[in-house]
Computed example of a mutant assay.
Amino acid sequence: MESWKVNLISVWFGCFFTGLAISQILPFLPLYVSQLGVTSHEALSMWSGLTFSVTFLVSAIVSPMWGSLADRKGRKLMLLRASLGMAVAILLQAFATNVWQLFFLRAVMGLTSGYIPNAMALVASQAPRERSGWALSTLSTAQISGVIGGPLLGGFLADHVGLRAVFFITALLLTVSFLVTLFLIKEGGRPNVSRGERLSGKAVFASLPYPGLVISLFVTTMVIQMCNGSIGPILALFIKSMAPDSTNIAFLSGMIAAVPGVSALISAPRLGRLGDRIGAHRILLATLFCAMVMFFAMSFVTSPLQLGILRFLLGFADGAMLPAVQTLLLKYSSDRVTGRIFGYNQSFMYLGNVAGPLIGACVSAMAGFRWVFVATAIVVLINLIQLALMLRKRARVPAR
């Protein structure tokens, strides 16, 4: 088997365990904050939001730095750093005795993050260009699988072995990622980018043939994550408003939250392969349009079943959007700055993770649940128009 395929299989398992480890803590994080002595409803809401968001905020700040280091020192080293660093940070969270310690350790967790973007950059740099869309889409199914299974496993473990024990199990899973990376991944030649040759941020963009389009793709990544996150704060409450007599709101909410991941698993490799044939830009524009239509349609649903069906259909688009963006970023950047570009893109992804829930909560408070879906659709529409214009401009303007 070709070495890049062996690496793809190896980092797939690494990304799966990483996604599983991170997502299985999130469902019970407010319960853990409460266990650490935060009692009032207002304080519990505030600390739950802060401990959740600080990881993404710190990650957004440091991702370009890790991307730059990956270009100079190699991506395998960054994968080892991220998996071991997060394992230690999560293990220490099991020993937190107050919420300030948890907040600090969640910030450290953000500082050590970066396994998945570095795995993406490794696969992107090794896969043949004509198969990069399929390779990145296949790798994205690992994170999707982990994010689907994580909350289910985390909830089960929290109920049966206790909250603190979940941190030990999560650290163990990340240690497995570390060992998979250490023994199975072969990077090949080291990057030929020394510290002295390291480009400044301005020089990185000056080296790109279409810097405006690359920035537009960063914004698209942020919008994709923002739209995925905007529904989170209101999903359970919206379902309850449609089915007030239901006795299993939590189960319904969990199912409807997870169902896009199932369809994304189905669509990601297939649409990635199609993108290799017809162009990733066509796949990206088509899936953004489909997502916009689905969000508009969700604002009119009258039952949880209708919402679940539309979210399942949304997942088919979700599975292709981020891999298509990454494929285009690979196409429009050189090997010398791939790590930096993927690092910047990851920063925008984390910013979307932070902004999405905030926007959803604010729109819901001001205008009601259904307007969250409308506002999300409008954001996608604006981004779709802007990206289409940039792609059209790229087609007219030769690379410099």
Rank of each mutant, 00 (worst) to 15 (best):
F178W: 10
P209D: 15
K202P: 04
A158R: 00
N248Y: 07
G150R: 06
C227Y: 01
M226D: 02
I185S: 03
G162C: 09
T247V: 12
S177K: 07
L252A: 12
M226F: 03
S177L: 05
P269K: 10
I148P: 01
L163Y: 14
F168Y: 15
F205C: 09
I185T: 12
G154L: 04
L153T: 04
T170K: 10
L152G: 00
G212L: 07
A236S: 08
Q225A: 09
V223M: 03
R190I: 00
K240H: 07
I224N: 03
F167C: 08
I266F: 14
I215F: 04
I239Y: 00
M242P: 14
R270D: 05
G261M: 06
R198V: 13
V259N: 00
T221L: 02
P233I: 07
S216G: 15
G229R: 11
L265Q: 05
I169A: 13
G155E: 02
L217Y: 08
K240N: 13
F238G: 05
V219Y: 03
Y210N: 05
L157C: 11
I224K: 01
F238A: 09
V262H: 04
G201T: 08
T175Q: 13
L179V: 10
N228E: 13
D159P: 06
F218A: 08
K202G: 06
G189T: 06
D159F: 06
F167N: 05
T247Y: 13
F156S: 14
I234S: 01
S267V: 06
L153C: 01
M222A: 05
K202L: 15
L237N: 14
S200A: 09
I224V: 07
R164P: 01
V214A: 11
G261W: 01
D245G: 04
G229S: 13
G201M: 14
F156H: 12
S267E: 09
R190K: 07
L184F: 15
L184S: 11
Y210A: 11
M226W: 06
R198W: 10
L153G: 00
F156I: 12
S200G: 15
A250E: 14
S230T: 12
P244G: 14
V176L: 15
G229T: 06
L217R: 01
F218R: 05
T220P: 01
L179A: 13
R198S: 07
G196Y: 09
G150P: 03
M226K: 02
L265F: 08
S263W: 02
L157Y: 04
L217Q: 05
G154P: 07
P269N: 12
L252M: 08
T175W: 14
L184G: 02
M255A: 14
K202T: 14
A243K: 07
S194N: 13
P151L: 15
I215C: 10
K186T: 07
S253G: 06
G155D: 08
I234V: 10
L252W: 04
L182G: 02
